[in-house]
Design a protein around this nucleic acid. Sequence first.
DNA 1: TAAACAAGTTTATTTTATAAACCAAATTTT
DNA 2: AAAATTTGGTTTATAAAATAAACTTGTTTA
Lengths: 93, 93
Amino acid sequence: MKELDPLLHSQLRLAIVSILMSAVEADFVYLKEQTQATAGNLSVQIDKLREADYIAVEKTFEGKKPRTVCRMTDTGRRAFEDYVQTVKLYLHL
Amino acid sequence: MKELDPLLHSQLRLAIVSILMSAVEADFVYLKEQTQATAGNLSVQIDKLREADYIAVEKTFEGKKPRTVCRMTDTGRRAFEDYVQTVKLYLHL
DNA sequence: TAAACAAGTTTATTTTATAAACCAAATTTT
DNA sequence: AAAATTTGGTTTATAAAATAAACTTGTTTA
């Protein structure tokens, strides 16, 4: 049985990537709202995805407020598609 | 975002259930071969699935050798179908 | 100007997954 | 026939992961 990429096989990281796969980009606040995660947890998981180069993270300022914007990288997109194919085997789809 | 049943959202437990969903039953030895898991890990994860009543476990003797046979329960089957539906949302399927 | 808020990050705790060590019975080797 | 090995596991210890609590820095607001 093919292994499920452990970086994506995590409730929260999968949710983050799922959102990013169907949007051009999403910022920290939006991801937090959608996933209902705590800020700390979200921060950690975003960082893991960034370290693996699955997502790109850009820290800017919107006026005086900081804004952390995330988007998928090509590596991340490939990893996601791979994960989808593998999970389908497990789910008999 | 709907949460992914943590009991099923685990590499090894998902593999076990995936196998059991497409077979009437499977024994410990077979599951170990298919999943490539260590006996200890397999034993632990089987027990968690049993505690949740997702699978039924029967310990018999095949001649002189012990044999641990697993099969899905109705509860388990429902949980799996539910999990499939939820994951599909995450994967945009 | 002090208190509360926003957007995060860092660190500590809890939970989970995994493997190493162990056990009992049967089988094989010497 | 005693010793070593294998089979089919379980129990316990360790490593990794997820999560939350506490903290930081700058910004409004009372």
